[in-house]
């Protein structure tokens, strides 16, 4: 049981909880800006999950300098592939947030309201 109090287990658990909180925020909120904020929270939680899965205990960052020599890098570094994937994902996340906010601004100019109850022109 005490094994579950290591860093990667706690971060994976917090990532899953944050994913649930963000999902709850998207479903239950009526303001469009709050939905966009919850979407950003879901994004952050997925990134935390990915980086935590690539962590190996008692190892250091995947950079070869005076701390890690070239010959025994296999025994001393953590996984560099999830970090490379998360690097790209963070930048795409900010692009998506900017696009969502532009759409929210155009919708506000159309209907003068930020509640999604007012946008029911596609309901049948």
């Amino acid at each position: 049981m005490i094994q579950y109090l290591e860093i990667e287990y706690i971060t994976v658990f917090a990532g899953f909880l944050l994913l649930m909180v963000g999902l709850w925020g998207i479903i239950s909120q009526k303001n469009i800006i709050k939905m966009i904020i919850s979407f950003g929270i879901i994004d952050t939680s997925i990134h935390m999950l990915l980086v935590a899965i690539g962590y190996i205990r008692n190892r250091t960052a995947p950079i070869i300098d005076s701390a890690v020599s070239k010959s025994d890098a296999v025994d001393q570094i953590t996984d560099p592939v999830p970090q490379a994937l998360v690097l790209t994902a963070i930048v795409i996340g900010v692009g998506i947030t900017a696009l969502l906010l532009t759409y929210a601004l155009k919708l506000f100019r159309q209907n003068k309201s930020l509640e999604i109850n007012q946008y029911n022109s596609l309901k049948w």
Binding site: P62, I63, I64, D65, K70, V74, I77, P80, A84, L87
Partner: peptide, 21 residues
């Protein structure tokens, strides 16, 4: 990841493995 760790610095010449990936 072991392939990237063993052969990465010699094949690409970069010290930062995340950069080479």
């Amino acid at each position: 990841a072991s392939y990237y760790a063993e052969k990465g610095p010699d094949e690409t010449g970069a010290a930062n493995l995340v950069t080479s990936v």
